[in-house]
């Protein structure tokens, strides 16, 4: 007989939750302890929150109106940030393309493929700020370290997604070129790369957007650009100048997003063709 839900539900009830095993209880206790510990560590206290909030209002008042007497050098620094971002992204993309060819399962040796993939994964796990600190330590303060940090960050990102785009090409699509005697690089150049172009453009534009944000933050560790100005203004309590910098950053980020959006619209028909 089939048990209907309208029937005697209590007679055959199914528990809402499964009883957790002992290990589950222990895990729960551990997680709770950790959370309580976290609250302790960050010292959340009502009076702290209210005090901080009044500071927020005060700083907010000091930020208005933004100070514009140094607007020209600030715009120059914003341009430097843009240059760091674009140059670093381009280098990162270039390296990713070369690495992608050697990491592509269709045209490369499995060992080489695996080692390049692991290398890219390692690069990716390091945050851009740490790359910044590292390169500033090696090459000194300034945009050069910033470009390298952005390039490393872009490589970690594009290296992975380019390789995945190349791998999406199917074996049987390559059969034709292989049967005509194409070398592995020939196959890459003639089919794998062109087929992936729409995908690569998307990834690259996204990488550029990331890089602009990254290169702003990189200024905070001394790797050049508008971030340095923000750092200095905040340290000297010049909140009115800091707000000018923030507005410039906003404009910069919006600008890049607009540009990449319009390029994306341009290439849409190409991605549909394949």
């Amino acid at each position: 007989m089939i048990n209907t839900s309208q029937g005697k539900a209590s007679a055959f009830s199914i528990p809402r939750f499964e009883k957790p095993p002992l290990l589950g209880w222990l895990l729960l206790v551990a997680v709770l302890t950790f959370l309580i510990g976290s609250f302790r560590t960050v010292e959340i206290a009502p009076e702290r929150v209210s005090r901080g909030f009044s500071r927020v209002l005060q700083i907010g008042r000091e930020m208005i109106p933004p100070r514009v007497d140094r607007i020209v050098p600030l715009i120059q620094q914003a341009l430097v940030t843009l240059q760091i971002a674009t140059l670093g992204t381009l280098i990162g993309i270039g390296v990713s393309l070369v690495a992608g060819n050697y990491a592509c399962r269709h045209v490369s040796h499995p060992y080489l493929t695996a080692s390049i993939r692991s290398f890219v994964a390692i690069v990716r796990t390091v945050p851009e700020l740490i790359w910044g600190l590292l390169f500033v330590a090696c090459f000194g303060l300034g945009p050069f370290a910033g470009v390298l940090a952005v390039a490393a960050d872009t490589f970690g990102f594009c290296g992975r997604f380019f390789t995945e785009a190349f791998d999406d090409v199917e074996d049987r699509e390559l059969e034709g070129l292989r049967g005509l005697g194409a070398t592995p690089f020939g196959q890459f150049l003639a089919l794998i790369l062109p087929q992936s172009i729409p995908n690569l453009v998307h990834t690259s534009l996204f990488a550029l957007e990331r890089s602009v944000r990254a290169s702003i933050v990189l200024g905070l560790v001394g790797a050049g650009g508008i971030g340095v100005e923000l750092d200095v203004a905040m340290r000297l309590f010049r909140y009115d100048e800091a707000s000018t910098v923030m507005l410039l950053i906003l404009v910069l980020v919006l600008l890049i997003e607009r540009i990449s959006e319009s390029v994306r619209r341009q290439i849409r028909p190409y991605s549909q063709a394949s």
């Binding site: 049987r172 034709g176 005509l180 062109p194």
Partner: peptide
């Protein structure tokens, strides 16, 4: 293979 004109069943052309 360089002396062969292979015409594969699935065309394997580069669409872009």
């Amino acid at each position: 293979r360089c002396q062969v004109g292979f015409i594969p069943q699935n065309h394997g052309l580069s669409p872009t």
